[in-house]
Design a binder for these strands. Structure first.
Lengths: 328, 328
DNA sequence: CTGAAAGCGCTTACAG
DNA sequence: CTGAAAGCGCTTACAG
């Protein structure tokens, strides 16, 4: 079909071993090297990676499996991963699971068939549990979502503490009926929920929260009726930026002014949170750094499979804006 | 290393040809099939795609090369492509070029070595020109960015007409000093610029525009000083959503009220354009449909390489909001 | 420094 | 329906 190493060898008048050495940068005399290089550009030869991988038993492919490629948090993460992969001459295979454990299982299987060199994975809560029991031996780094302790390296923030800080801020501003809107599919959302519960309980307040599919649409559907109730919350925290956006839309639709009738806060310092009026208070995660750190851990793991499991907890910070101004 | 078809054959007491047939769903007696399937689950055998691809000479890999994975337009596009690829059992290799022609060239070469089955590509203006002369024969669909006529299938909108419509709307609202902020790296931005020029000229107005790197940061840097001038525009249109966001930030920083001191409009109906006050008028592109259509064209092209070149022009629509209310 | 040979794990005609 | 053989395009010891 396409031009192979044999064609180049014939044109250059050498063996294919020699062509292979030239391509790999091995020890070859200058004269032969020049002849082979001429033959390569004359024929337009391009190595076949499928063959190289089969023979060398390393694919040089990194898989990235995320729950929602449309969530800008994951987009930024993927961007950082891709940048590192590019400079390491690794390929990136993209897998989007829509928070579906069945799809995650299928993708894991496919990536096993792919003989990937490494995996960056943001799994659902369901799969976090299963992953411990599964036979899965490719070098893997869990990012954003991980068990408290497990078999794989991970890069996370302290979700519980971050949410506790956010809720404590609202309490300090005088809010008492604080509602929580949390994703139902990730350990991350669950940890953030626990941070909310801890803060409320520490102040002797009754929690009032919902767990939903982590999309703006689900947030709108859940928040609309909630905000129409007589005992509706004075403030709302959400576990991610899509839920935050949905909550804001629902508040606007209900005609509630922010923060006077509803204070609002959530996660991820997306640019829009600063552009709406008033600005929305958020927990900012170092997402680019998380992506780069995950790749660093992965590269080390690929090099040294016997390293002890590492868990990297990065720090997040609250960015406070008008949406959480003191309660009247 | 890992379990191969030979191991399964030995356990099942058949030849590896037979195992291959079972895996491929070929004609095998029920009794033998059962034995082989038992051996497969007993050994935990997973086919090696590298070997399969080398032998069958088709990779089943789709490459997606985009200029900026962080631009939500491209993110949505990638999401749609991935969804179709998943159901077609194709893998997606993700390539991000940061609008860099050198990086595009490198990625094209890599994907050639990958022996990809197809390519979805949003190239820079530089590469749009080169692509015509390059030897590049993998099935390819250009999306969002394409030459007026060329060797490859494409899916675009009528960028020139869409921008003309947007500017004509501003003119009808009474604005005269309308500035344009356009990306410098894509045919898309250039076509939108031409639509702006056409509308201004049709009304005998002097154009006033800048071409910049298509990022929010570049937009802020360009717009800040511009809005500080005595002859600053009364209205501003931008060629994409990142520039729009940057322009809005610069307007806010300059303390200009919208639309009274500065009307604003751009591209892509991102959710934030509706949540800021006032809402921003935008051209909405059918981005998901563009991604799915691109995959449809690609699948057909993969099946029938001899089809004539097709150019699919999808329709866009203006979503008018408060940011372009009539001028005082 | 260079070449011949073996083999990575499959699929695919070709016999039987 | 089943198996033996060839071969996809490489790399990698092994000789020389």
């Amino acid at each position: 079909m396409s031009i192979s190493i044999n064609d180049v060898a014939r044109v250059a008048g050498v063996s294919k071993s020699t062509v292979s050495r030239v391509v790999a940068g091995g020890a070859v005399s200058a004269e032969v090297r020049a002849r082979v290089e001429a033959a390569i550009s004359q024929t337009g030869y391009r190595p076949n990676l499928q063959a190289r991988r089969l023979r060398s038993q390393r694919s040089g492919i990194i898989a990235v499996i995320v729950a929602d490629i449309r969530n800008p948090f994951f987009t930024a993460l993927i961007g950082a991963v891709e940048a590192v992969a590019y400079q390491q001459e690794l390929r990136v295979m993209l897998c989007n699971t829509d928070e579906d454990p069945a799809r995650e299982a299928l993708y894991l299987q496919m990536m096993q068939e792919e003989r990937i060199s490494g995996l960056i994975f943001a799994p659902t809560r369901t799969t976090v549990g299963r992953l411990e029991r599964m036979q899965w031996d490719a070098p893997t780094v869990l990012v954003d979502r991980a068990p408290a302790a497990g078999r794989h390296d991970s890069v996370v923030i302290d979700n519980r503490a971050a949410m506790t800080e956010l809720v404590t801020h609202l309490l300090a501003q005088g809010y008492r009926r604080i509602g929580g809107l949390f994703g139902s599919t990730s350990t991350t959302a669950t940890e953030r929920r626990d941070g909310y519960l801890a803060a409320m309980q520490a102040h002797g307040l009754a929690p009032d929260y919902r767990e939903v599919e982590p999309t703006a649409e689900a947030a709108i559907a859940a928040t609309g009726p909630w905000l129409a109730r007589a005992d509706r919350p004075q403030a709302l925290v959400t576990s991610n930026n899509l839920l935050l956006m949905g909550a804001l839309k629902a508040a606007r639709a209900a005609g509630l002014s922010i923060p006077d009738q509803l204070a609002l806060a959530g996660f991820d310092n997306e640019r829009w949170t600063e552009l709406v009026e008033p600005g929305i208070s958020v927990v900012e995660q170092p997402v680019e750094e998380m992506g780069r750190a995950a790749m660093s851990l992965l590269l080390e793991r690929m090099k040294s499979p016997e390293l002890p499991v590492r868990r990297l907890v990065m720090s997040a910070r609250c960015v406070l804006r008008g949406s959480t101004r003191p309660a009247r």
